[in-house]
Design a protein around this nucleic acid. Structure first.
Lengths: 203, 203
DNA sequence: TATGATCCTGATCAATTGATCAAGGACAGT
DNA sequence: ACTGTCCTTGATCAATTGATCAGGATCATA
């Protein structure tokens, strides 16, 4: 069996993944060269293409790792427990906020390739995004039926949540250029804003 | 005087600007090649660098044109009329929503370069973004003093507005991949969502 | 129809891109 | 010491990048 490499020497491969993540998040796929990643990881450029078949596959590996971390979010929404719809939805939202606050790269990676149709965006949607969107959307629709959640296009509501939760953290460079700031209790504020949007009394 | 070219033949130069705008919005500065723009504009690649000194300057010209269109927005917020803070702020918000709905490229151009610090982002912030941010921020702060607008970091509130208003329209490709949709009355919904965020009774 | 300025193109440049390959190092098991 | 597998590097490839340049259209004015 030439397969089952299981755990290769973690150091170099892991350093490549880390470097690639931060570069892809900052400049996008096209804006990042394999040599930039290699330099940041402290390895030869040719080593990237030994561990990953192509730049494209390296990008996919980065995405896979990111969304593995995010799976706790999906579970929070999916578990059909005795919890109310409101609680389940906000559990997912807060999990997402936590992820974004811990590592702004997640939201950047999710969105930076999403501006124009491309094979990469299509892969991202089908492989990862849909798994989060599906259950969350169902929850929103059900909440609307029960009159707990404001009416309106559920996809629009879903994207509004993503936009509020993510952009506050991922646009930190731009925001701090505009005005020096203190991001101490952003998480609570963002959570309150989203709650306002979802559960407002307005139709 | 070799200067004062004033109005050059509009057709080619304008076609270049239009093509550049849509490419830059879709793929960002680094993800777009001058040849792609030239092909879309139906001109030779060398013509881009006849009309604009460099790719960088072409990008800046695109941005200048975009923000010229957006100046109505700034005026709506700036005019210190008899209007209430609430009305002035929502006038600006609705103007921004209209701009984003008419042309999703505006929000994409504003944000696609804003993920990592770069000379381009710095130029964008200092030359354009600050002119919009300043008056709007002042309005938010004044509204908070009067107890009309919810408390919290004004920069965060500002960015939340931008995020809600813009991303709903600019992520249309991604959203329609997730689910076929009808964007008929998005504008009213978005406006209502933002109003909810700004003027909610919550602290 | 000359003149001159403006607009536009194709050829070409050096630099950078993702990718490939030969070669050797590290290190285990025999 | 020998073998074989996995890891890593440097040299190098064709393709693409932004930029430059010489020269030809085009067109108003004289």
């Amino acid at each position: 069996m030439t397969q089952t490499p299981a755990i290769k020497s973690p150091s170099a491969r892991a350093r490549i993944l880390t470097a690639a993540k931060s570069r892809f998040a900052a400049a996008g796929f096209e804006g990042t060269s394999t040599r930039q990643i290699a330099e940041k990881a402290g390895v030869a450029q040719s080593l990237l293409l030994y561990h990953f078949a192509s730049k494209d596959e390296l990008w996919r590996a980065v995405m896979d790792a990111q969304f593995e971390r995010a799976d706790a979010l999906r579970q929070a929404v999916t578990v059909s427990d005795s919890l109310s719809i409101e609680d389940r939805l906000m559990a997912g939202v807060d999990a997402f906020i936590t992820l974004c606050a811990e590592d702004p790269d997640l939201h950047r990676l999710m969105t930076i390739e999403g501006r124009s149709k491309s094979d990469r965006l299509e892969w991202l949607v089908e492989t990862h995004l849909r798994r989060f969107f599906g259950p969350t959307r169902d929850l929103i629709v059900e909440g609307q039926k029960q009159g707990v959640i404001r009416n309106g296009d559920p996809v629009l509501l879903y994207y509004t949540i993503i936009a509020i939760a993510g952009s506050v953290f991922s646009f930190e460079p731009e925001m701090s250029l505009l005005e020096p700031r203190n991001n101490a209790q952003n998480r609570e504020t963002v959570s309150a804003l989203i709650r306002q949007v979802l559960f407002a009394q307005g139709s």
